[in-house]
């Protein structure tokens, strides 16, 4: 077996706040091959973004990676000095953020923001970089790219801005893109188009993708593998079809039951009762037990990893159908 492009092992990213330690990511492991798409799903606050930022080396203080390894092409990013990390960011690991209205600098023109991303890495001249920017804009289906280059972000629509962000991510032909809810701020049709484009581009270029979202429908549409996060941990992990069709963890099952679907039309939507637990100095054991119908006394102890290729962490998993 060859080494995958990215292997995250027991990643722990904690925020050392005055009130205590917030264990935003607490023992997360997964692997990603070239050209594959991993969907990272979970409720708000489950640590998805922090996982993404850990990979990019962009965790803000007081947070830091407190343990584990992030092996990217054989190098451990968790131990990489900032100088080296900067060279990787945007070049080998690109990112797309949630709200393109917030991520493009409002006072700089699109061309400035695209060209600098190339110049920072390739050592390319301004003109070469402009050519690459144009090509990237064409690739993501932006009409009249020359004009768009001269525009400021506020002169573009939300969908157009997100295409620009995708173009920026693709410009340096990265091996991995971390996309943090990139379609959440867009309406459904645009979301569909963008999903389709990104999937196509990743297949074409062999870029691996981590797609962070709380929307299971989106993940179902594009992911090869799915990792379900709950309270800083991955509670279920496996091939997308497996996880979606035969969930083993009660939390995944709950998430799936709360997605509106055509075949269950008319039936009331199930909701997971209770609230996301605080990650501030969390107790040991399964953190979902307070909201779980299947919980028992055993759940006060950490559930061991189980299941092999379709992995889950639960003392009382649902039956494999």
């Amino acid at each position: 077996m060859t080494e995958p492009l990215l292997r995250v092992e027991e990643l722990r990213t904690h925020f050392f706040t005055r009130a205590g330690v917030v264990k935003a990511v607490d023992g997360v492991s997964f692997a990603l091959e070239r050209g594959r798409i991993l969907g990272l799903v979970g409720e708000s606050g489950s640590g998805k973004s922090v996982t993404g930022f850990s990979i990019l080396g962009l965790v803000d203080p007081p947070g830091r990676i407190a343990g584990g390894r992030i092996l990217f092409k054989g190098r451990d990013l968790a131990a990489l000095p900032e100088r080296e990390m900067r060279k990787l960011r945007g070049a080998e690991i690109a990112t797309i953020f949630q709200d393109p209205a917030m991520t493009l600098n409002p006072v700089l023109r699109i061309d400035t923001q695209m060209i600098e991303a190339v110049v920072a890495h390739a050592g390319a001249g301004e003109e070469t970089a402009r050519g690459r920017a144009l090509a990237a804009l064409r690739k993501v289906g932006i009409p009249a790219p020359e004009e768009r280059l001269r525009a400021y972000p506020h002169q573009l629509s939300g969908g157009m801005r997100q295409r620009v962000a995708i173009a920026i991510a693709l410009m340096n032909e990265p091996d991995l893109i971390v996309a943090d809810e990139p379609t959440t701020a867009l309406d459904v049709t645009i979301q569909g188009q963008i999903l389709y484009e990104v999937q196509r581009l990743c297949r074409e270029t062999g870029t691996a993708l981590i797609w962070i979202t709380h929307d299971l429908a989106v993940v179902a549409a594009i992911a090869d593998e799915i990792a379900v996060m709950y309270a800083g941990r991955i509670v279920e992990y496996g091939a997308a079809a497996e996880v979606l069709d035969r969930p083993r963890h009660p939390y995944t099952a709950g998430l799936l039951a709360s997605v509106p679907s055509r075949n269950r039309k008319g039936a009331p939507l199930a909701q997971i009762p209770g609230m996301t637990p605080s990650l501030l100095d969390p107790p040991p054991g399964c953190l979902f037990r307070t909201r779980c119908a299947r919980a028992s006394a055993a759940c006060a102890a950490d559930p061991p990893p189980a299941g092999g290729a379709h992995a889950f962490r639960c003392h009382h998993p649902l039956e494999a159908a």
């Binding site: 962009l58 945007g90 917030m102 991520t103």
Partner: peptide, 12 residues
């Protein structure tokens, strides 16, 4: 966000 994003592009 745009500062974080600028850093994510690998800018110095």
């Amino acid at each position: 966000d745009y500062v974080k994003y600028a850093r994510a592009k690998g800018l110095a």
